[in-house]
Design a protein around this nucleic acid. Structure first.
Lengths: 137, 137
DNA sequence: AATTTTCTTGACATAATTGATCAAAAGAGG
DNA sequence: CCTCTTTTGATCAATTATGTCAAGAAAATT
């Protein structure tokens, strides 16, 4: 029995990656450099950067002088953005996302708990942006 | 991409199971009955009840008239108890459980976030007991 | 245009986890 | 001794997570 309800390693990598881009704001940074700096398997990082690009958190450039760059200001990217981009919705239980997945009766007394916890977690994660995380307050 | 950071189905079953025992407080209830009432695969439920028994949330009795019973009063069993018994520690990231698992530098600016979120989630889950959940208030 | 560089995409492989089932063993009671 | 129920361990299939590879497409330089 390990421990659950964690973000995936992929999401953890994604956070490190965005953090690195935040620390090098403005510069176009190659995946190779990010991978080396943050100890992320390089090809795996490519997949992650793809996802971040697809949802519009990151801009990509090909060819020589290519690389990646944050697509928004540091204050406008938060932990929830990154986690959701990689792992999808945050919730303690499926039913907090889609009520239909409550396999039992509609009147499940635990359901409201999951809904509230989800709201709380999302709120908390969304309040932490990468300006705050990239050391300069 | 589905959604993560959820309790396992097993933990969900465990909660339903404890809820049923709470609703039938005092009575010694067979696994078969719980499984039927809460739509849980029977043999799977056995495994779950084992875990709950091992950590002392539930008492088991064998043979004819055998079954299961909550080992504590309803107010003294909360969601965190059940979830931890099944899924282990609750945390958004390994490093919130064991600082050593921070693969990067010691000065990771995200780490405090995970620690605080863990505290928050555990607090919240531990405040919800099965007296509250078993309809009567 | 050719070459180099970097991202893009899809396929693939491997390991771990999860959900579930089964059968034999052990205790309780009549 | 027989029946009932939990206990334990083995096993299995499906899914997910992690990671790798290779071929393709765009960009810049020469």
């Amino acid at each position: 029995m390990s421990c659950i309800m964690q973000i995936t390693r992929q999401a953890d990598y994604a956070i490190r990656c965005v953090l690195y881009l935040a620390e090098n704001e403005g510069k176009i940074t190659m995946a190779k450099e990010i991978a080396r700096a943050k100890r992320i398997p390089r090809d795996f990082l490519s997949k992650i950067l793809q996802k971040l690009t697809r949802v519009g958190l990151v801009r990509s450039y090909r060819g020589i002088k290519g690389g990646f760059q944050l697509a928004r200001r540091l204050e406008e990217i938060n932990l929830l953005d990154v986690i959701q981009a990689i792992d999808g919705p945050v919730a303690f239980n499926r039913c907090a996302i889609n009520k239909r997945l409550c396999t039992l009766s509609n009147s499940c007394s635990v359901h409201p708990v999951w809904v509230e916890m989800r709201k709380e977690m999302e709120g908390r994660l969304s309040r932490i942006n990468f300006k705050m995380l990239s050391n300069r307050i």
